[in-house]
Amino acid sequence: MKNDQQVNRMRRALCLGSLLISTSGAAFTSAAKQSNALPKQAKNLDYYQFYLAWQQLSSLSPQEYINRRQYEHSGLKSSEIVKLDFEHQNVVEIESFILSKYEAAFIAHIGSFT
């Protein structure tokens, strides 16, 4: 009986310990995105989510899409292509954000490096 109690106590401690470690790890990672404590790659974790979402949206890779749009609109600045996208309803919904497809491709492109 005493042994069982000890085992249960250890199990609880182990569960609590792993929860604390994972929670503080996640908190640290999340906080680090806002600071300069971590290298650039680690800050791109959210971008990676965009990259995953992009893959569901388009058969082209983000880079291929960006290249194609830049070719189509040569002479226009990126901000002007984004404006065109919004004007012509060429938007996508990623992570609940309503974004121009061109800017979404840029974010996904950054995410593709992580």
Binding site: S79, V82, K83, D85, F86, Q89, V91, I98, L99, S100
Partner: peptide
């Protein structure tokens, strides 16, 4: 959302 985006 589209209009706020268009106006940047």
């Amino acid at each position: 959302a589209k209009e706020i985006g268009r106006l940047n």
